[in-house]
Design a protein around this nucleic acid. Structure first.
Lengths: 144, 144
DNA sequence: TTAATAAAAGACATAAATGTCTTTTATTGA
DNA sequence: TCAATAAAAGACATTTATGTCTTTTATTAA
């Protein structure tokens, strides 16, 4: 479904978000531990999320990553996915045709349309707040 | 969604199936042309489909690939996908957790469940007959 | 039975994704 | 101001997916 980068990116963002109620910044080492991901690789991905205004970062002593409380309702899974993997999950033809469309459909065009729409709708309507609450409460998990 | 291999595999199978009404065998060269795919690579993929009893092949003069007419209703997109990409599209956790389950869910477990179920249902209930008819009629396309 | 044909098999090549390491830049607190 | 800290940036390494080429095997028809 998504690339590894995207999976790590979503998991990291959810973890960071789960800490934002106390305005806690968190470092890359702890993030990688908590989501069981390769640290240096995850750091690269977080750079992309910072550039896309999804998470915040600050350098130096007492620096780290955080999510703004006021962004919890604004940020959706869709924004994270698009920032890392692009929009191909929603838009790309299921059979890889470059110009598949209503006028020039592949044999599964109509069937995939609904599946892709459902996925897009779900991602666009799932906020960071919604998915981070379970981590805070301990009812959902980010590793293993 | 699917690997390139899987996309080529589905497209090739649909094309071969669209010719089965006259019991026509078709060679790899023509297949690759008709679905705009790399020939040698596509040949490899067809080997997998033959081993999985999805298409038939015969060597030598007047040999080639074909789909049995009686298989048109039996073969589903799901079988092709599983043969080439495995079942990870339906079963893998959306965030890549190795043991994500109802008891130990990732934060998007419930949301992804429905999307993956819809995809699985669609693939399992779409037959080769259904998707190859448009190619025969010229209303759907396998390249560009 | 032999020559031509076409898929199967296996070795090899290239590109993309994933992952690591080192150096640089920014920030903080002593 | 300086030392410590932590993210940013960039070069590099490894693995996986994608793609190519050559040799082998099976089949057919002359």
């Amino acid at each position: 479904m998504f690339s590894k980068s995207c999976e790590y990116g979503i998991r990291a963002t959810i973890f960071i978000a789960s800490l934002c109620y106390n305005d806690t910044k968190v470092g890359i080492k702890e993030i990688a531990q908590e989501i069981d991901s390769p640290m240096a690789f995850t750091a690269k991905i977080l750079q992309v999320l910072v550039k896309n205004d999804i998470i915040k970062s600050s350098k130096g002593v007492r620096g780290g990553f955080m999510v703004l409380k006021e962004d919890l309702k604004r940020i959706t899974l869709s924004q994270i996915v698009v920032a890392i993997d692009g929009d191909s999950v929603f838009l790309r033809c299921g059979l890889g045709l470059s110009n598949c469309s209503e006028d020039h459909p592949c044999p599964v065009h109509e069937k995939f349309k609904f599946v892709k729409q459902d996925l897009a709708f779900m991602l666009e309507n799932t906020t960071l707040e919604e998915v981070s609450i379970g981590i805070k409460k301990g009812t959902t998990f980010l590793k293993y």
